[in-house]
Design a binder for these strands. Sequence first.
DNA 1: TATGCTTCCTGTAGTCGCTACAGGATCAAG
DNA 2: CTTGATCCTGTAGCGACTACAGGAAGCATA
Lengths: 129, 129
Amino acid sequence: MATIGEASLRSGVGIETIRYYERKGIVPKPGRSGNGRRVYSPSEIANLRFVKRCRDLGFPLHVASRLLVISMGEQVSCGEVQDFGQAQLMETRSKIAELENLRTALEELVSNCEEGSTNCPMLEKLWSQ
Amino acid sequence: MATIGEASLRSGVGIETIRYYERKGIVPKPGRSGNGRRVYSPSEIANLRFVKRCRDLGFPLHVASRLLVISMGEQVSCGEVQDFGQAQLMETRSKIAELENLRTALEELVSNCEEGSTNCPMLEKLWSQ
DNA sequence: TATGCTTCCTGTAGTCGCTACAGGATCAAG
DNA sequence: CTTGATCCTGTAGCGACTACAGGAAGCATA
């Protein structure tokens, strides 16, 4: 049984963020000690770590929450889990593609700065067309 | 001289977003007609288009605003403009690198779904260690 | 002229995932 | 007994919008 500070250290989730997850119902509410402080069991700390893992992979909070619920449930609906993974992968791939277009555009924009043909070639490009 | 609706169409910036930019001081306040409605000159519409161009390139609003101010000013400080461009390029590159790590991790995670070794291999992976 | 549709106005609240207080209570160590 | 760390609740801020509510005009048709 741990305090919120210990739970934070062991899970890697910030204290304020832990309370936020609780408020949002992402993780179940922990018990309280006599003085009203939150008390975390090892499995509750593991839950926090699980959510953090999901977040680090880019899953939105509501998906992390759903994955946690699925994990807790009787029979695991593996198909739904796989769907979330696939969706997140697609999302990530399309974000990469988008950012690569941006990178190309920015590289071209910045490269204009070398040629001092106008007052400020980059601004010119931004205004042109 | 155009209404906000026309300005929105011609600039590609949504009506609510135009008003938001005005509130935030990103673009100068337009004039008003007798009945209190906003009236946009062609150059004010161009300003909106400029901000949109910046946003599409990933620049944060305060940078777009600064670039607009620089453009309006007497002498253009080309160095500052170039710095913004370089910073945005670096930012974009590091975001891409980050997302590529995520993609790799997700691909591995999802690939586990094929091997039905456990109840749900993806969840197992998320909990493990 | 009356009606009805569209556009416009202001102001406020919601989104997402935190993060940072303010103002207070309690605990552990010296 | 005091000091400093940790905890509590509640609220507000971030960025960049987006979505109303509730009302005032404008424009076209009957």
